[in-house]
Design a protein around this nucleic acid. Structure first.
Lengths: 209, 209
DNA sequence: GTTTCATTCATACGTTCGTTTTATTCAAGC
DNA sequence: GCTTGAATAAAACGAACGTATGAATGAAAC
């Protein structure tokens, strides 16, 4: 196969290392070494390490956002009041599915997403664009319609819960395996478990105040 | 009031900065400057930056583990089959309650816990001791008893979900507020929402295979 | 008054970091 | 054949990092 160009190899290497060691834990030197490129190539192709991180984040997140959007379109074309389980599936499913080719079962990408969501460095957290905001708000509106008893604040809380569960499922990969605590399972079972878990959670009646 | 000794001031400063900027994003110089101490004080009192991180993590996590343990004891003394909601409350509640004095509403500590759970640096992730493992396994056994339909793997998945939701609730503090997305709410409401959300999730029947 | 010992201090060391600069390569355009 | 311009290469920059060193401090012990 034709070897990809330097720019792509740097993106691949950066995605790998950022996922494993975080933004600050990854040096430009390590990235270029893994990519087989020169140290200055990052500056030439991306401008800076921060802009490289943004490019990596964008490449990973864009297909997820697109799939979430398409899933909601398809659902709402059928009925304005879809079941909660299907809303959850459309929202959380792409986080399990949309992994770039060459990914080892999606685990690497999942770890990268966790890194992006939780890294304390400002450069990492400034990746969201209008597309991400828009799809989030559209799901919020859809959930609000089928879960009329919830206050907006509590609904945002629950939607953050969806993200938390789907993302942190893979977080344990980071951790040393502790006795009695199994490692994260392969995608398909985790996906089913997550949908079940989250559908029940989203469907819960609000607590009596 | 009597000013605390240097060691404590360093611990406080480190807790603050680690929570905000992560382990790698916090320099020993920044810690000692905030603590009003000399640069070499970290080496003298703790040995190294990594051992300081371990001391900070221990100080934050120990009371949480103790409260989880006490809560389970109290519950099981009453009945061997407590309701799921009370198990969830005993497990997740201390993550909302057990915040050291002087904490700004627990938000700082919550952020620190997220940092500890998700930081990719090895030095940060090696804090768990036998006490944490033990309490986790005891809760696992209790949940397994009252939720007999679940496989061990799926139950571990769900328990990770509890941690994810309670921890990541505060994660958004890190993020820039995006339009339409409210900031995390004060402790009491979030606590009620989390218990409701998680009780429903834990009680869900397993997906049909 | 002197000794002792825990603590604090200023300073320096060696490394690694992100970035920049200057030179070189090399295929395409004329 | 010469020029052009994108791409790569090697080297160096200054800054920030964690850590180590040895001297100063100051209250308690004798």
């Amino acid at each position: 196969m034709a070897t990809p160009d330097t720019r792509t190899q740097i993106l691949d290497a950066a995605e790998h290392l950022f996922a494993e060691h975080g933004y600050r834990g990854t040096s430009v030197r390590a990235i270029t070494k893994l990519a087989g490129a020169n140290l200055a190539a990052v500056g030439y192709h991306f401008g800076s390490k921060a802009e490289l991180m943004a490019a990596v984040a964008h490449r990973v997140i864009e297909p997820i956002t697109a799939a979430q959007c398409a899933g909601l379109d398809k659902l709402l074309a059928r009925t304005p009041d879809p079941p909660v389980s299907e809303l959850v599936e459309a929202f959380a499913g792409p986080l399990f599915d949309e992994m770039p080719a060459g990914d080892e079962g999606g685990a690497r990408t999942s770890r990268l997403i966790v890194t992006i969501l939780s890294d304390p460095a400002e450069e990492v957290r400034s990746w969201t664009g209008p597309a991400e905001d828009s799809v989030r708000e559209r799901y919020f509106a859809a959930f609000a319609r089928v879960l009329p008893g919830l206050s907006p604040e509590e609904l945002w809380f629950r939607m953050r819960g969806i993200l938390a569960v789907t993302a942190v499922d893979r977080l344990q990969v980071h951790q040393q395996p502790s006795p009695g605590c199994v490692s994260p399972v392969a995608g398909e079972a985790a996906r089913r478990w997550a949908i079940t878990f989250l559908t029940a959670a989203m469907s819960a009646p609000p607590p009596r105040t």
